[in-house]
Design a protein around this nucleic acid. Structure first.
Length: 392
DNA sequence: AACCAGGGCAACCGCATACAG
DNA sequence: CCTGTATGCGGTTGCCCTGGT
């Protein structure tokens, strides 16, 4: 209603940014913070609308952006979160620090969506297009479960967003009072210019849902990955509280390690140019408010989605887990882009050749074995890494 | 070497939501 | 409470690059 479109003003430049413009924007924000995006362009001497500046900053110039190839874990995280949250890219992006929502969205649209479609999986519903796999009653309950989780997660994300805003305001006013210099209107999420250089970026939020998820779908049904599963509390623990992972086979501790490894973005495979992931996960940097929220949600997850309940015969949950397990494994195995496995800084090298067998779809047992090998190689990698390795 | 097609990605557009007056 | 404004978010577009012919 009566809003003036900011980019319709005459004289404002559109299209690709030049290095000079980037430099101006960067210099201005480093010195003053962005403050009001609307007012920024004129102050910074840019012939752009504020919106364009904001986009350029958040999607490209921000110093805490990780660029380049998505790791396997990032792909998996995106897929699982998309199944949960749909096209809520900003929510998904909160689980992938250093990745922007735009980048994730583009990656989904150009890579993952096509890959899913190719495999006969509907990228929207995340179900096989021929409904054979999902026709049973259990699967419809699974869908309901997923939907329930998604609803809950959505609501929680919104609540957390509010908390973040509140703490943001609080910290802004504190900064304002504490710093002698004029306090730029920094928000921890969007303008980490100065802060990011000195301290880790905000940790990924809401990873508990992934942890819970993984704790379900890694619960062994075939004696494969896990052996006897861990208690829900231990699998849901944050990495800082997790017991040290000793070397060895794919046992109990490995299952927990795997969960930490996959569920926590901080444990993603380190790639070239991927520094400081370890700092990101350190929840001691979490604002207490968010911490509380996560802990509360863990309690929630423990109540409704614990592997305990799965083991106790609650097949709805375990089926859901299996669905996603099957789904993710299928995806990973069918990936035409096996470079994600093998090119990413030699991740597969240490795993005894688990990943190389991407012979397409093959038989079910083949791909299952292949993926077991693949995950084993990952677990070996995890287990062989020193506890304070940059990977974690 | 030139042309073409397709893919990938940065940026734009417009709607939704939050917030201030 | 209402209205106008700023910002965030998701969908879409268009340009550039690369590979194939």
């Amino acid at each position: 209603m009566g809003r003036t479109p900011c980019c319709d003003k005459v004289g404002l430049k559109k299209g690709p940014w030049t290095p000079e413009e980037d430099q101006k924007l960067l210099a201005y924000i480093e010195e003053h913070g962005h403050g009001s995006w609307r007012a920024l362009p004129s102050k910074a001497g840019l012939q752009r609308c504020g919106k364009s500046c904001r986009l350029r900053w958040t999607n490209y110039l921000r110093p805490d952006i990780k660029r380049g190839k998505f790791s396997l874990q990032e792909e998996q995280t995106i897929i699982q979160l998309h199944a949960l949250l749909g096209n809520r890219w900003s929510a998904i992006a909160t689980h992938l620090p250093k990745r922007t929502d735009n980048e994730i969205k583009n990656y989904w649209n150009t890579h993952l969506k096509k890959r899913l479609a190719k495999m006969g999986i509907d990228p929207v519903t995340h179900k096989p297009k021929n409904d054979a796999l999902l026709s049973s009653d259990g699967q419809s309950k699974n869908a309901a479960n997923l939907s329930h989780m998604a609803q809950w997660e959505s609501a929680r994300l919104e609540a957390e967003a509010r908390l973040v805003r509140q703490s943001k305001l609080l910290s802004n006013s504190l900064q304002h009072h504490q710093l002698g210099s004029p306090a730029p209107e920094f928000s921890p999420a969007s303008t980490p210019v100065i802060k990011s250089a000195a301290e880790p970026t905000s940790p990924p939020r809401c990873l508990d849902i992934l942890k819970a998820w993984n704790s379900v779908w890694t619960t062994p049904t075939d004696g494969g990955l896990g052996g006897d599963s861990e208690s829900p509390t231990s699998t849901l623990s944050f990495s800082e509280n997790a017991p040290p992972i000793s070397g060895g086979g794919i046992g109990e501790s490995s299952a927990a390690a795997f969960i930490e490894f996959v569920g926590n973005s901080g444990g993603m495979l380190k790639e070239e140019g991927d520094e400081d992931w370890n700092g990101v996960e350190n929840s001691t940097h979490l604002p207490e408010l968010i911490k509380d929220g996560i802990e509360n949600s863990i309690s929630f997850m423990e109540g409704s989605w614990s592997p305990e309940s799965v083991r106790n015969g609650n097949n709805e949950n375990i089926h859901s887990g299996n669905f996603m397990k099957r789904f993710t494994e299928l995806l990973l195995n069918n990936s035409g882009d096996h470079g994600s496995f093998s090119e990413g800084g030699g991740e597969s090298d240490s795993g005894g050749g688990g990943s190389g067998s991407g012979s397409g779809s093959g038989s079910g047992s083949d791909y299952y074995d292949d993926n077991k090998n693949y995950w084993n190689s990952i677990l070996n990698l995890v287990n062989s890494s020193p506890p304070n390795s940059p990977m974690f």
